[in-house]
């Protein structure tokens, strides 16, 4: 319930108007949204019980390593069952396969639709979504870690919360099934990072400073 309360309200996209190139405009709109989501995510992480008591170095490591996964949980969740198989980055930013391809995000599209279909088949509850998001951050396999014991305790606490929730619903196998969806999330996040770095480096798409700093940390 703490994680549900901490979850920020979804953002709206601000349509870019700096260019006539439609696919570039899509990318710029998306990058602006991601940058603002990233800012919110950092504030959100600080409210997860246990996160702020980690050392600053570990807080930075977990965020640098897990931010994209944590953001994509929300995208996959919102994209479930969307008409036309779109990716719902925001209520007013829905991209279909052709738009993603034109924007250089074809691989990301495939991975995220796969994840959205998986979430849909599992009928995730809001409680499960927020817990998966926190686990994506805690389980990001950040390296190096300053205090492995504290990070482990943080992970254990989230795992316990998930197990308590599932046993209250008498769903014996659910926690395990949710954890088994994490590799697909990591794969999607890897593709997203590569796609945005490629857009920046090869197509000279300008990125906001925070977004670029976080992408560089994963490069």
């Amino acid at each position: 319930s703490h994680l549900l309360l901490t979850e920020p309200a979804p953002l709206e996209a601000n349509q870019d108007e700096s260019t006539d190139d439609g696919s570039l405009r899509t990318v710029l709109t998306l990058c602006d949204l991601l940058n603002r989501e990233l800012l919110l995510l950092i504030g959100w992480a600080k409210q997860i019980p246990g996160f702020s008591s980690l050392s600053l170095v570990d807080q930075m490591s977990l965020l640098q390593s897990g931010w994209m996964e944590a953001l994509l949980v929300g995208v996959a969740w919102r994209s479930q069952g969307s008409a036309g198989e779109e990716l719902v980055f925001a209520d007013n930013l829905r991209l279909d396969a052709a738009q993603c391809r034109a924007a250089g995000l074809a691989e990301l599209y495939e991975a995220l639709r796969h994840l959205a279909a998986k979430y849909q088949a599992m009928e995730l509850s809001p409680e499960e979504v927020v817990t998966l998001k926190a686990m994506a951050l805690a389980n990001s396999d950040a390296e190096p870690v300053d205090c492995p014991d504290s990070v482990q305790r943080f992970q254990d606490w989230l795992h316990e919360a998930l197990q308590d929730y599932e046993s209250s619903r008498r769903e014996q196998h659910r926690a395990g099934r949710l954890l088994m969806s994490l590799p697909l999330l990591r794969q999607a996040a890897g593709r997203a990072v590569q796609a945005f770095l490629r857009l920046h480096r090869h197509r000279s798409v300008p990125l906001h400073k925070l977004l670029l700093e976080m992408l560089d940390a994963k490069a």
Partner: peptide, 15 residues
């Protein structure tokens, strides 16, 4: 750490 100065600053802010 210098390379990650925005994240560093955001985490140090108390809000």
């Amino acid at each position: 750490k210098e390379k990650h100065k925005i994240l560093h600053r955001l985490l140090q802010n108390s809000t």
